[in-house]
Computed example of a mutant assay.
Amino acid sequence: MAGSAQEARRMAPEFPLGRDGASVRQRVEAVEKLLERSFTLPGTNQPVGLDAIIGLVPVAGDAVGALMGLYLVWEARNLGMSKWQMTRMLGNVGLDTVIGAIPFVGLVGDFLFRSNSRNLKIVRKHLDKHHPGSRVIEG
């Protein structure tokens, strides 16, 4: 049994715990992918994440989605991002939560308004400017 646990740890992706720009970038990108683009809906080629799935649960799903979205805002605060950037990010999470709370409309809103993707874009822009060593060339 101990061998299989060690093997599972080796196969699991590394989740960086550092406070440097590169570690923060990897964490926020991983959380955004989990919340917005975990898998693709069959037949639609539309990426869907945990945020849309838990949004199906009335009230509690939207609250949990908001809390998970606030993780990106917390990381932004730890980076020392400006109050304006933080306000924009909080507004994105708030708007996503309000739209998600509307029955049926909220389901469509989760596909059209991806607050976590918007917030990732804000964090990436800050990291590119203030922590250029954390940039990743995407192909």
Rank of each mutant, 00 (worst) to 15 (best):
G3P: 03
A12W: 09
K83G: 13
L72D: 05
P58L: 09
R19Y: 15
K33F: 13
E36I: 01
S38R: 09
T97G: 01
S117I: 03
E36P: 03
R27S: 06
G61C: 00
N92G: 02
R10E: 08
G3V: 11
F111A: 14
G49F: 00
R88I: 08
A5E: 13
L72G: 01
T97P: 00
T44M: 15
G94K: 08
F104A: 10
E75Y: 05
R10K: 12
A5N: 08
L67Q: 08
D96Q: 11
E14Y: 11
M81P: 00
G49C: 01
G21M: 12
H126F: 12
G100Q: 03
V123I: 15
G18P: 06
P42N: 13
H131F: 07
Q6N: 12
V136F: 02
A63I: 08
L90Y: 10
E36K: 09
Q46Y: 14
E29C: 12
I54N: 00
P47T: 02
F15R: 13
A63L: 08
H130E: 15
V98R: 01
G106S: 02
R10C: 07
A66V: 05
G109M: 07
I137T: 13
D51M: 08
H131G: 02
F104W: 09
A5D: 10
R118A: 10
F113P: 00
V108F: 10
Q6M: 11
L79W: 05
R9H: 12
L70C: 06
E32I: 03
R19E: 15
V64T: 01
E14I: 12
N116G: 01
G21K: 05
K83E: 15
H131C: 04
F104R: 05
A52I: 00
N45F: 13
G43S: 08
V59T: 07
E7M: 09
I53F: 00
L17N: 14
V73C: 04
N92F: 07
D96E: 06
N45S: 14
P13Q: 12
V108N: 04
P103G: 03
M81G: 07
F104I: 07
H131P: 00
A76Q: 02
V98F: 09
V73D: 01
L41M: 14
F39A: 15
R37P: 01
M1N: 14
D62M: 13
E36N: 12
E32R: 09
N45R: 13
I54M: 06
M89V: 01
R88Y: 08
A12R: 15
L112P: 02
K121M: 09
G69M: 05
R124C: 02
G133E: 15
G109R: 02
K83V: 09
V59Q: 06
I53G: 00
D51Q: 07
I122W: 01
P103V: 03
D96A: 12
D128K: 04
R19F: 14
D110L: 03
A63F: 07
T40S: 14
G3S: 13
Q26H: 12
I99N: 02
G43Y: 10
L41A: 14
S38I: 05
G21D: 11
I53W: 00
R77W: 11
R9T: 09
R37N: 13
P42E: 14
H126V: 04
R37V: 04
D128I: 00
R19L: 15
M89F: 02
L41Q: 09
F111Q: 11
R10G: 08
P47L: 07
V136T: 05
N116L: 03
L35P: 00
R37C: 10
I54V: 04
I54Y: 00
Q6W: 09
F15Y: 07
N45P: 05
